[in-house]
Amino acid sequence: MSIANIVATLEKLEKMHKSLLEFANAKTEFIKQNDMEKLNEIIKNEQSHIAAINILEQQRQTMVTDYLRAKGIALTDSTSVADVIEAAKSTESTEALVGVRKRLVVLLEKLKMQNDLNQKMVFNSLQIINLTLDSIRPQRQEQFNYSGAEVRGNAEVMKRSFNEFKA
């Protein structure tokens, strides 16, 4: 197993993650516009990209493991590209591996930040929806007479659920 193969796989991963970042940026715009149809389309496309990334990641893991075995290095549960960089002697292919790894790390950080923003935006939208629903839902108001017992007749109307009311 050569470092060039690992570099090629990492470059494919980089390309797929760039695509995911573009999807995340598009999701931000669709969340702002409240365009649920386009948001659902983006999510479907993301899922296919994630499946492809998982396959590439398995290939990368296999390549890293094979490389380290070939070098006679004891394997741990989580072998990484950093282990390959450490095990390899300083060569041009090692420099390429370091470069693509750095780019991928930066890209993953940007993707994480964008996804966090999208998650916060969706959460805030849900809070607004819940607040709106709470404001139009009939409030249960208990009425008591002088003895503290509930007045009959009003309790039946207050127990009806939100779904029973029509706008």
Rank of each mutant, 00 (worst) to 15 (best):
S19C: 02
R69N: 09
E29C: 06
E29R: 13
L75R: 10
K166G: 03
V100D: 01
L13W: 02
V81H: 00
K15H: 14
V157I: 09
G148Q: 00
H17S: 13
R60H: 03
E22S: 14
N124E: 15
L13Q: 11
N45K: 06
E86T: 14
A4E: 15
V122T: 12
A82S: 10
A74I: 12
T62C: 09
E41T: 10
S19D: 07
E37Q: 12
M36P: 00
L10M: 15
E57Q: 14
K166M: 09
Y146C: 04
K27V: 00
T94C: 13
K110R: 14
N34S: 07
K120R: 14
A24M: 05
F165C: 08
L20Y: 00
L13T: 08
G99M: 08
E29W: 08
K112H: 07
K44L: 11
L20H: 01
A167S: 12
Q59E: 14
A96F: 04
L107I: 01
A82Y: 02
V122E: 02
K112Y: 06
L21I: 04
F123N: 15
R160E: 00
M1R: 00
N124I: 11
Q139R: 12
A96V: 02
Q127W: 06
Q47P: 01
T65Y: 10
V100Q: 05
V100W: 06
V105H: 08
I43C: 03
R60V: 08
L97F: 04
R103N: 14
L131H: 15
V7N: 06
I43V: 15
D83C: 08
E109T: 12
I85E: 00
Q141N: 13
Y146P: 02
A74Y: 04
G99C: 08
N34F: 01
E14H: 14
I42C: 00
L13D: 07
R60M: 08
H49R: 14
A24Y: 02
K15L: 11
E95T: 11
F162D: 04
K102L: 12
A51V: 11
S78R: 13
R137Y: 05
N154Y: 13
I129H: 06
V122C: 09
R69L: 12
L117Q: 04
Y67E: 06
A52F: 03
T62F: 13
R160G: 00
I6H: 02
E57M: 10
T65L: 09
N154I: 10
E109A: 13
